[in-house]
Amino acid sequence: MTAVLNNSIVQRLLRVPPAYYVFTILLITLWVYRPAMLNPNVLGVFVRQNAPLGVLVLGQLIVMRVKSIDLSGGGIILLVNYFISSGLFPDASLAFFAAIALGTGTAIGLFNGLMIGKRHASAVIVTLAVSIMLVGLVQFLSSGKPPGDVPSFLNDMYDTKLGVVPTPVIFWAFLTLIVAGLLSFTVFGRFVDSVGESAEAAHFSGVPVERTVVLAHTIAGFIAGLAALVQTASIAVGSVRVGLDLPILSVAATILGGVVFGRGEGGVWGPFFGVLSFTFLFVVMTAFGVSDPGKLIAQGAIILLAAIFYGVRLARSR
């Protein structure tokens, strides 16, 4: 066992995020058994459905890289959805809604960041509490009833395509590119690497540790605002439940993509393929007639295996 693990090729293979393996296996499975499903239009629809998750993952991976977590994305999506669909702002423009979504997300992200970075409060509890408060607030404002319709221009945009690729998917990929650039080319990216590896060493290197954590959460909040826009556009009507499972799913996709608390080998594209893997898992299982519960089990098993894969590697590298 040890000999096998010490082999340099095995070592290198172990360093590839599990998402790439899962994605490749699923793609080959489809190609061999259900080639008809590999139609860009069909796949586009499936991938588009996961665009909100994909966007949210971008924020999640940044905070997980600094050893934190953000469970408040669901609350942010719900609140933004309420603002847009409740008719509070009739005849408002896209720019107005975008400003509201991003403003809300950023403010909440900043609050999370201050509580976690400055107060050193537990990240799980803070973001969970924020989410609970936001859900409660929306329930209170809407008295538990779904609010009205989403302005049609949002949904129309959601349905557009650029060639065969749906616009939301392009938006998601573009955003991923930006976050990848942020993390690999800016000083902030270096700070994130440092804080994730060792907050103590980062402090003595002159890295503003607290500010990095606050900023990471603020960016995650901003990105959650974007995810809320995409999610709202996708469902056309208001809801008091939309997006609540997304934060947990985003944690799962991030892990599958090779980013675990503080360690970022998976980069930004690992989690991107993590989300794609979830999508394709769904497609493959549907193609094979696996029921929804079966999909949940498979999803859980894949997360578990990916995590064990990392755990074993980590234990080895110590």
């Binding site: 970075g117 107060r119 329930q139 907050a199 607290e210």
Partner: peptide, 28 residues
């Protein structure tokens, strides 16, 4: 009182409690 505000209050209490405790280290 509206039953729908109770969730929000629950969250607020949780936040107040966690805000009261101060820890040395950052973390989950």
């Amino acid at each position: 009182i509206s039953p729908f505000i109770q969730t929000a209050i629950k969250g607020a209490i949780l936040m107040a409690v966690v805000g009261l405790q101060s820890r040395k280290k950052m973390g989950l």
